[in-house]
């Protein structure tokens, strides 16, 4: 099995040019096939046209999603009803025991509460900061440089980001030269004995959130800035004629115009926050009362091999986001009704 695999790879191995050629072939081939499908389907008119379009545009996506996410999701639910060790030949059903564990185990329960805190604070702050920057740089000269700087953290990998923040939060005996920037700053400001930040609950959780906000603000800024740009100048001008300025203009004209985008950004960041575990994983490993659901899920499955418990947490994660889906559904309904 490996041999055939490797013959293919060996052919690609040394030769970068052939790898890039493979990319061009793949992407080119993909687009060519689409072009042919479009060409052929374009000949079809009349009653069949609509259903054919639906099939062409939706089937690949739906199929890929069924294979890649729906089946694994069902499998996860199945695993969540089974014993801790799903590796062995004997898989035993345990009913809802894993769920009971998740809601009764005190440390897991506080993890659930902490996750909710993350879900509220991170999207709000990141979107707020992103919106602020987007508003401020709207039509500002040299804005792209400022935007690039705020975008920069988004481009740093999670692990890279976590490492630098770990150094920022580093604790060293206050009588010695400091390695952590945060301690250095507060000492300079006159706080003689700053605590070991990562040990001090609940401050540590908020400090970890700062990392996520730092990363996500770039995303919020890029998308919101784009949305702000799309507001026709005429509308703003008209509002100005009516006497709206500064904050009022922002509240009564700009925000409603980009409302939909705001919801999208908040939703996206919320889901990203729900899923991210790299930060907690790298900085504290979930210790000192900083654990979040996604990290606990990852640890249960991948370091402790508690497939059942980990899967139950994954299902809870999924359920936790259903209200969010519901809210978006309502929004979208309203949107469509108004059209």
């Amino acid at each position: 099995m490996y041999d055939s695999h490797h013959l293919i790879l060996a052919g690609l191995a040394g030769d970068s040019a052939s790898k890039l050629w493979g990319v061009i072939e793949a992407v080119g081939g993909f687009i060519a096939i689409l072009a042919i499908i479009f060409l052929v389907a374009g000949k079809v008119t009349g009653r069949l046209e609509r259903p054919l379009t639906i099939v062409i545009c939706l089937v690949p996506v739906v199929l890929l999603l069924i294979i890649g996410l729906v089946i694994p999701a069902i499998r996860t639910f199945y695993l969540s009803l089974h014993g801790a060790d799903a590796y062995g030949p004997t898989v035993h059903s345990v009913g809802f025991q894993n769920y009971r564990w998740a809601f009764s185990d005190p440390s897991t329960r506080s993890t659930l509460i902490r996750t909710v805190l993350w879900l509220v604070i991170v999207p709000a702050v990141a979107t707020g900061a992103g919106l602020l920057v987007a508003l401020l740089v709207d039509n500002m000269k040299r804005a792209s440089l400022a935007k690039a700087f705020i975008f920069l953290p988004t481009a740093v990998s999670f692990v890279g980001a976590s490492i630098i923040w770990k150094y920022i939060y580093n604790y060293t005996d206050p009588h010695r030269p400091q390695i952590g920037l945060l301690s250095e700053i507060v000492i300079k400001l006159g706080w003689k004995n700053p605590p070991d930040w990562m040990l001090s609950s609940p401050v540590n959780t908020f400090l970890l959130m700062v990392i996520m906000v730092w990363i996500q603000t770039g995303f919020a800024m890029v998308v919101l800035s784009a949305a702000l740009k799309s507001i026709p100048d005429e509308i703003i001008e008209a509002a100005r004629m009516d006497g709206a300025t500064g904050y009022r203009l922002f509240r009564s004209v700009q925000v409603p115009m980009i409302r939909n985008t705001l919801v999208v950004v908040i939703t996206t960041i919320m889901i990203a926050t729900l899923k991210v575990f790299d930060i907690v994983y790298t900085v504290t490993g979930g210790n000192f009362n900083t654990d979040v659901l996604s990290n606990e899920m990852y640890t249960q499955i991948f370091t402790q091999f508690n497939y059942g418990r980990g899967s139950a947490l994954a299902v809870i994660l999924f359920l936790a986001v259903l209200p969010l889906v519901g809210y978006n559904v309502l929004q979208m309904r309203k949107e469509r009704a108004s059209r």
Binding site: A84, L199, G285, G286, N287, F288, T299, T303, Q304, F305, N306
Partner: peptide
């Protein structure tokens, strides 16, 4: 077993020192 040796034991000993 991993649930102890790569899980609970690490976590509890960290609390032992940290808290």
């Amino acid at each position: 077993p991993a649930a102890v040796g790569s899980g609970a034991e690490w976590k509890a000993m960290t609390e032992w020192f940290g808290s």
